[in-house]
Amino acid sequence: MRSPVGLCGLGNMGSAVARRLSGTCQVLAYDLDPARTGAAGELDGVTGVAEVADLAQAETVVLSLPTPAVSAQAAAAIAPGMRPGSLIVETSTVNPADMHRLRELCAPHGVRVLDAAILSGVAQMAAGTSTLLIGGDEADVARARPVLDALAPRQLVLGELGAGMAAKVINNAVAHAVMVVLAEAGAMAAATGVSERRLAELLADPEAGLTRPLTHRFLERVLPGDYEGGMPTSAARKDSTLALALAQDAGIPLFAIQACHSVYEIAVGGGLGRQDYASIATLWEQWTGRPISEKE
């Protein structure tokens, strides 16, 4: 990359991004904290700038900022000075609506917007092993490719603008919810004499309860819309009832598992008792009016 790349935000992740970019191009860097800007400017290939608007001289500007509001403020300051056809790449974690707002701010100036959510931590970015979740027009993705390649070797293009951010937010929501379930499972194991480490080994098995709902029930049943045979929803409800009773007997407070049980009650009451319990996905199809399965 011959032209400089702008970088707004030099926190922990932003600093790692600066190091990755500086290996392939000249970087113009800015942070609201002058000390951070100064520290980044000491890196080979990185030049600190005094004002956020100074980043407008770059054809591509990367945002690595703490909140959607700060990203919007930065884009509003940078975009007016950028040349038409320039590109702002949002790597901060925001929602699709925030990406659409960025597009609205930048479009009057002819500036394009792309989301490239970082699906990893600072250590992975520093090591060059990150994954980017990308949303935007194909032409914009192609134009940003040198910057994207400098940041991460693995890139998943999810769809239109905002799709990358949606995928990251959904992924994080799953991870955080699963962490609550695992904490509840660990508490039940401790109360019933099950080795927590042995429980972890069990759950890590591809045929056990942690990954099989994804690899079998979601991929092989929900997506094709095939709910015949398999473990009936009524049986899943029975097992869920047993788990609630076990926790009650052991004095273990449940939150996620308790809430999930309600879905099986609704599913059985709604006539799904004899179908595979992956059929609970059809409840969301009914509630939202949108298909989850790929079945036409």
Rank of each mutant, 00 (worst) to 15 (best):
L203G: 07
V141D: 00
L210G: 04
L283E: 08
M13K: 05
G110T: 09
G81S: 06
V178G: 14
P80K: 06
L223M: 11
M231H: 09
H109I: 06
L7S: 08
A152Y: 04
P80I: 04
A243M: 02
A35Y: 05
T192N: 12
G164E: 06
G269H: 12
A183E: 13
G6I: 01
L214D: 01
V122L: 11
P206Q: 09
A243D: 01
P153L: 15
E201S: 06
G110P: 10
L158H: 02
A76E: 01
A235Q: 00
C25S: 14
M179E: 14
L199Y: 01
A79I: 06
E296S: 15
A74H: 02
Q124V: 00
V268C: 13
V113E: 10
P66D: 01
A189Y: 14
A166N: 03
G251R: 10
G48A: 03
A117R: 10
E285A: 10
E42D: 09
A183D: 11
M1W: 05
V17I: 10
L283V: 09
V222Q: 10
R36E: 05
T67S: 07
G121M: 07
A235V: 02
L32Y: 07
I257A: 11
S120M: 11
A76I: 00
W284G: 14
G14L: 12
A150R: 09
L254C: 07
L148Q: 02
T241H: 05
A185P: 06
A278W: 02
G271Y: 04
D115R: 00
P291K: 15
E160W: 00
T93H: 03
A163E: 02
E228R: 15
G164Y: 04
S3I: 08
Q286T: 15
R154P: 05
A236H: 07
E228K: 13
T60R: 12
L151K: 11
D239N: 08
T211C: 12
G38E: 14
A144F: 00
L133M: 11
A247W: 01
A267Y: 00
I118H: 03
A77N: 00
V5A: 03
S279C: 10
Q155L: 05
T67Q: 03
Q73Y: 01
L246G: 01
I118K: 05
Y264T: 10
A256P: 11
Q275S: 14
V181C: 15
T131D: 06
E196M: 12
R83E: 13
S120Q: 09
A123F: 05
L65S: 03
I292V: 12
E207T: 15
E59P: 09
P232Q: 06
V157H: 10
M188T: 08
L210T: 06
V147Y: 00
A167S: 13
A191P: 13
I257E: 04
C8Q: 05
G289N: 04
G110E: 08
M188Y: 09
G251P: 09
E184K: 09
G162M: 02
Q73I: 04
V141P: 01
G81T: 06
E207P: 11
A245D: 13
G186H: 07
I257Y: 01
G186Q: 05
R290D: 07
A267D: 01
S293N: 14
D249T: 10
L254F: 07
E296W: 13
L63Y: 07
E265N: 14
T91A: 07
Q155K: 04
S15F: 14
I134P: 02
I170V: 11
P4L: 00
K168G: 01
L272K: 08
G38M: 10
P84T: 08
E296R: 15
M231Q: 06
